[in-house]
Amino acid sequence: MLRQKGKGIGYLWVLILIFLGYFLLWGTSSTVRTQEKSSCVSCHTNSRELIKLSQIILKMRPPVKSEETKGEG
């Protein structure tokens, strides 16, 4: 009787783990899916890539502000 009860609890734990695993994997894969879908996300979350690009952009278009601005705004 006790052994059967123990088996039942064991099955319950297995089921819980399967459910948890499914939801965890589903959550991760959906994030990965979103990131894979969009080149915007894959680039804008990659600091190394952005640093590389920002150096190129700064060479192409250096920031421009008038040197004649004086005083407190």
Partner: peptide, 24 residues
């Protein structure tokens, strides 16, 4: 507290907007 005087705005020789304020 702070009081600011004068303000002139314009564009420089490169066409960039600027402002110049006087005394504070």
């Amino acid at each position: 507290y702070k009081h600011c005087y004068g303000c002139h705005v314009g564009k420089d020789s490169k066409g960039l907007p600027y402002y110049q304020t006087e005394k504070t």
